[in-house]
Simulated assay, not measured.
Amino acid sequence: MRSEAMGAEHPAFGRAGGAQVAAFERARGGDGAAAAVAALVGRRRNVPMDQLLHRSRCKPEIAEARMLAMYLTHVMLGRTYSEVGQFFGRDRTTVAHACARIEDMRDAPGFEDEVSAFEAAIGAIDADGRERRHAAG
């Protein structure tokens, strides 16, 4: 099931998901999980999706949010650098650089806590970008 069928609110990411996730999913090759990760980072970092996926570097806080989204897409979703680059409109070497930068930044305690919280949230998402449901009992 694609995220566009989920209505205005994405089940895992709230109102930051929904229609925006569906639009970017379609525009970026149908990767619902990557779109959901981008929506989550954008919402928590207060960066609009269009800026997160913009071709230019933009402001430093936008570039950092984009690097974080690329890192999480690679590490948590298992996408290759090329796949991540295609989704974000970047070269695979740019994705590799972003991942290395985020790994270096994880040494800072506050940043490590933030990344761990993102990882926990993303760990509950399936391949379509939907929240996983656990069977009772």
Rank of each mutant, 00 (worst) to 15 (best):
E119C: 08
I122H: 04
R55E: 12
V37N: 10
L68I: 08
G110V: 00
L40S: 00
E131F: 02
F88W: 04
A22Y: 06
H134G: 05
E131R: 12
M76S: 12
M76Q: 13
D104W: 11
P48L: 12
D104V: 09
A117K: 07
G123V: 02
T93H: 11
R130K: 13
A127Y: 03
A36I: 06
R92K: 12
T94L: 10
C58Q: 15
F87A: 01
I122P: 02
A35R: 03
G42T: 02
A8Y: 09
A33E: 11
R130M: 15
G30Y: 05
A63W: 09
E114L: 12
K59N: 06
F118K: 03
G30C: 07
R44N: 07
D126A: 07
R57F: 14
V47T: 05
E64A: 14
F13C: 14
M105R: 15
R79N: 02
I62Q: 00
M67A: 15
D126I: 05
A19Y: 11
C58S: 15
G29I: 12
I62S: 00
A27F: 00
Q86V: 07
D50N: 13
R101H: 06
F88S: 01
G110Q: 09
T94R: 09
L53E: 01
R15E: 15
L68F: 03
M6S: 05
Q51V: 14
H97N: 08
A121L: 07
G129L: 03
V41L: 04
A34D: 00
A98N: 04
H10C: 13
A38Q: 09
M70S: 01
A69K: 04
L53V: 03
M76D: 10
G32Y: 04
Q86D: 11
V95S: 06
G78L: 08
G123S: 08
F13L: 07
I125F: 01
R26H: 08
E9N: 11
G30E: 09
R55L: 14
D107E: 15
A108M: 09
R106Y: 06
D126M: 10
L77T: 01
M76A: 10
A27T: 00
G89E: 06
M67G: 06
T73Y: 05
V95W: 10
S116K: 11
E25Q: 15
G78H: 09
A108K: 13
R130C: 13
E83K: 14
R133N: 07
D50S: 11
M70L: 03
G29Q: 10
V47D: 03
M67L: 08
A69S: 05
A33R: 13
M70E: 06
A12F: 01
G18W: 08
D91Y: 10
R45P: 01
D126Y: 03
M67H: 14
A27N: 00
T94C: 09
R130H: 14
S56N: 12
G42A: 08
C58R: 15
F111L: 14
R90C: 02
V115D: 04
G89H: 10
D91N: 13
A39L: 09
G7N: 09
A38S: 06
A23Q: 13
H134Y: 11
R133P: 01
